[in-house]
């Protein structure tokens, strides 16, 4: 599975945990209100899940990704 697919999977799982309605998540998807709909608590979980999976995460590195693709780029750059 590619890094992009893994990250999309993580985001979908977080939405499922919160019983949010299913939505299309792709590389260009905006992460927050106007896009996938992650709120601050979901973003907190995303940060923790990414850190657990990959040992680092953009939020802990003081980077605020705007799209799914920004997260993928964070890992491809690091």
């Amino acid at each position: 599975m590619s890094k992009e697919s893994e990250i999309i999977d993580i985001i979908k799982t977080i939405l499922k945990h919160q019983a949010f309605p299913e939505t299309v998540v792709e590389s260009s998807s905006e992460l927050y209100e106007d896009g996938v709909g992650l709120d601050s608590l979901c973003v907190a979980e995303l940060s923790a899940t990414l850190e657990k999976a990959y040992g680092s995460d953009p939020y802990s590195s003081k980077i605020l990704p705007r799209t799914v693709g920004d997260i993928v780029t964070f890992y491809s750059d690091s």
């Binding site: 907190a44 940060s47 923790a48 003081k62």
Partner: peptide
Amino acid sequence: GKQNPVAGQIVA
């Protein structure tokens, strides 16, 4: 509680 850059702490 686990430290978290977004929420301060999260439930772990």
